[in-house]
Simulated assay, not measured.
Amino acid sequence: MSDPKSMVEVTAHDVQGPGVVACPNPKMTLWSSHPKVFIDLSHDGRGKCPYCGTVYKLKAGEVLHHAH
């Protein structure tokens, strides 16, 4: 498995809705922009952007709070 282009650790506070983060994220520069997509972290705490290959990973110890 090759190393991802970049890895972004996120906290539960960064996660929206049912466990997703948006990519591109606010820290990315304009040249790397692509259509906004939502990466689902609710299954195993990580996900990869299909456009730029950025991997989003839930920071160690962070817990997603699911709405019941």
Rank of each mutant, 00 (worst) to 15 (best):
M7K: 14
V63G: 00
M7A: 11
S42T: 05
P50G: 00
G61T: 02
M1Y: 10
Y51I: 04
D3V: 10
I39S: 07
V20I: 14
L64M: 08
G61N: 01
M7H: 06
M1N: 13
K27A: 15
P26H: 07
A60R: 12
H66C: 10
M7V: 15
L30M: 13
C49K: 01
S2Y: 10
K27S: 15
V55H: 07
D3G: 11
Y56S: 07
M1H: 12
Y56W: 00
K27R: 14
A60H: 10
V15F: 06
K59D: 04
A22D: 11
Q16H: 14
P24A: 03
K27I: 09
G47W: 01
C49V: 01
Q16N: 12
G19L: 06
N25Q: 13
P35A: 02
S6Q: 13
K48T: 14
D44C: 10
V55N: 00
H66Y: 11
A12Y: 01
H68Y: 10
V37C: 05
K48R: 14
E9R: 06
A12F: 00
L58F: 03
L41Q: 06
V15D: 04
V15H: 07
T11R: 12
V21W: 03
S6F: 07
F38G: 01
G45T: 02
V37D: 02
V15E: 03
T11P: 05
R46P: 03
N25T: 10
H65R: 13
V20S: 09
L41E: 01
G17Y: 12
P26A: 08
H65N: 12
A67R: 12
A12G: 08
T29G: 15
P26V: 02
D40M: 02
G19F: 05
P4L: 05
S42M: 04
P18I: 10
L64V: 08
G47A: 02
G61M: 03
V8K: 15
T11C: 08
A60M: 05
H65W: 08
S2C: 08
I39W: 00
D14K: 09
D44Q: 11
T54W: 04
H43K: 14
V21H: 07
L58A: 07
V21L: 08
P24S: 07
H66R: 12
P26R: 06
G53Y: 06
S33N: 14
E62G: 06
T54L: 02
G61K: 00
M28H: 08
T11N: 09
T29P: 00
P35K: 08
Y56C: 07
V21E: 01
D44A: 08
Y56G: 06
A60S: 14
K5R: 13
S2N: 12
K57E: 14
V8H: 01
D14V: 00
H13P: 00
I39V: 15
